[in-house]
Design a binder for these strands. Structure first.
Length: 218
DNA sequence: AACCAGGACGTGA
DNA sequence: TCACGTCATGGT
């Protein structure tokens, strides 16, 4: 077994299934994460179950840019209260109202603009799956956000190589300290079977592991 | 009280 | 390409 896969097995044994992406409303979800609403669903890969949840994941991916998840949850709850976890609604609502709702997640001016742009794009998809290049072409969608959307909202095997991944695997000596995003992504995809469930768990486990060791140097 | 959080973009060199 | 600065709130 290669080192990439081997490390996955060790993380899984240590932390268990993570059940990402967290959703506001999923009955029977396992409330295991502290400081979080009951959004995780370990072992259940049937989410998103509808377009509503798919869109929620997409805007959550945008809102969580450089922001902790509990702050994003507050923003999502605000949006839900005004029936705004909906692309048509976000596209048409006042920008000031949108800014106010997502304020807890920070960068509200930029993120409101990003949500507007993405909502229009989402509407034009008409149910079709976006490509990575289409997502990257949008203002406000970078590689990590694009991969998160593909992997969690559309269940496509696109590995999310975030800052934690670079930190952990460079300290393990498996990649260079300043390896590019795309090269790290490729390393994982080359060493793992193309399975969206595996990609989801691995990425979530990396985040969990990094949080657990944030005071250590790894 | 600095520093970070499930980044991305704009600018100047 | 690359090094910085900017964006903003709330935790620790």
């Amino acid at each position: 077994m290669n080192k990439i896969k081997c490390f996955y097995e060790k993380l899984l044994e240590k932390y268990g299934l993570q059940g990402w992406w967290p959703l506001l409303d999923c009955k029977g979800c396992n409330p295991t994460k502290t400081g979080s609403i009951q959004g995780y669903h370990p072992g259940d890969y049937s989410y998103p179950k509808n377009e509503n949840q798919r869109f929620e994941i997409c805007i959550g991916a945008i809102l969580t840019q450089n922001t902790s998840w509990p702050q994003v949850e507050k923003a999502l709850i605000n949006l839900k209260k005004i029936n705004a976890i909906n692309p048509e609604k976000i596209k048409n609502m006042e920008i000031s109202e949108l800014c106010h709702a997502i304020k807890p997640a920070g960068y509200f001016n930029q993120k409101a603009k990003k949500l507007k742009i993405f909502s229009e794009f989402y509407i034009n998809l008409k149910g079709k799956k976006p490509t990575r290049d289409e997502l990257l072409a949008l203002w406000g969608i970078g590689p990590e956000t694009a991969d998160s959307i593909l992997l969690y909202a559309y269940k496509l095997p696109s590995f999310v190589a975030d800052a934690y991944t670079r930190r952990i695997f460079s300290s393990m000596g498996l990649i260079k300290k300043y390896e590019t995003y795309d090269n790290i992504k490729k390393l994982f995809e080359d060493n793992l079977e193309k399975d969206f469930k595996l990609y989801q768990e691995y990425h979530a486990l990396i985040v969990e592991h990094a949080k657990n060791n944030k005071n250590k140097k790894l």
